[in-house]
Amino acid sequence: MPDPIMAFIPAYRCARQISRVLKQFDPAMQQRLAEVVVVDNQSPDDTLATAIEGLKSLRHVRVTALRNCDNYGLGGSHKVAFLRTLEKGYAGCLVLHGDDQGSIADIAPLLDAGAHQQYDALLGARFMTGSTLEGYSAFRTFGNHVFNGIYGLAAGKRFYDLGSGLNYFSATRLADEDWRRFANDLTFNYYLSLAMVARDWRMHFFPLTWREDDQVSNVKLFSQARRTLGIAWEFLRDREAFLAANHADRPADFAYPSEEMFTQAPQEGG
């Protein structure tokens, strides 16, 4: 495989959705990838067990289920995956959230066209022309457009989304490890978005289909809005200090250990 890509699925309390997510990996998608990794962040439900059963059905690609040794947050799970991407020598990390809101089929044409070789990041954008939102409230859509605009003004670059659940990141750019200092919670992607602009990443936004039906939201809207504004202001005030500071709740060199709960090699004739 000339460009081995790892697909990373962060999972927390998504026992009802994770099977549907893994079914998106049809044989053609499996053969585009070197490994599919589910990272369970100490889910209190049956997310991990359900994920392992779903992974067993993927017979054309190596699959692995990891369980974080502590609750690291969504950002911390990204760090687990980014570290694995670098350690395994993969060309990049494809992110698909485990709550079945996005469709991996939306990024498949970009991979086939080699866009992951032309850009440092492929970013699914719920709020750009061509995207479809299903079950997403008008209020939240409006709020996202406002924050996209604010971050665009702060960074000097247009944003179509500050962090959907379908993205690709090049290992070449992940190797600088700025992301180690970003917050480990749900705001991780806001820090990453601003850093990508500051570090001159080649970014490409693409439209996607996004749906909400039986997902469990972990976002408290108004407190999250205040935090989001604060991050943009901190970046605007002094971007170099922003990038140099450790915004995580753990040391910047923390290893983010996880335990391998299941692995399976590609099956001959599977």
Rank of each mutant, 00 (worst) to 15 (best):
P2R: 12
P2K: 12
D3R: 12
D3T: 11
P4C: 07
M6C: 08
A7D: 03
A7I: 04
F8C: 07
P10K: 02
P10N: 03
A11V: 02
Y12A: 03
Y12S: 06
C14D: 05
R16I: 03
Q17D: 12
F25G: 07
F25E: 11
D26V: 09
P27S: 01
M29V: 15
M29W: 11
M29I: 15
Q30T: 01
Q30Y: 01
L33C: 00
V36K: 03
V36W: 01
D40I: 10
D45I: 06
L48C: 13
L48F: 04
A49I: 09
T50L: 09
E53I: 02
R59N: 11
R59D: 09
V63N: 02
T64G: 06
A65I: 09
R67V: 08
N68I: 04
C69K: 14
N71A: 13
G75N: 00
G76W: 05
H78M: 15
A81T: 03
L83P: 01
K88P: 06
K88V: 08
H97V: 08
G98E: 09
D100I: 06
D100R: 03
G102P: 05
S103E: 14
I107H: 07
A108L: 11
L110V: 04
D112I: 10
A113G: 08
G114L: 05
G114N: 07
Q117Y: 07
Q117I: 08
Q118L: 13
Y119W: 12
Y119C: 06
D120L: 05
A121R: 08
A121V: 06
A121M: 08
F127W: 12
M128P: 01
S131I: 01
S131V: 01
G135L: 07
G135N: 09
R140F: 14
T141S: 11
F142E: 12
F142P: 06
H145W: 13
G152Q: 02
A154N: 00
A154S: 02
F159H: 03
G163C: 02
S164Q: 06
G165R: 02
G165D: 08
Y168E: 03
S170M: 01
A171E: 02
D176K: 10
L186N: 14
T187K: 07
Y191H: 15
Y191N: 02
L192P: 07
L194D: 00
W201L: 05
W201S: 04
M203G: 04
F205Q: 05
Q215D: 06
V216R: 14
V216D: 13
L221V: 13
F222I: 13
A225Y: 10
R226L: 14
A232V: 02
R237S: 06
R237V: 08
A241D: 11
N246T: 03
H247E: 12
D249G: 14
R250P: 05
R250I: 10
A252E: 15
A255L: 10
Y256C: 04
E259W: 07
E260W: 10
T263P: 07
Q264T: 09
E268T: 10
G269L: 09
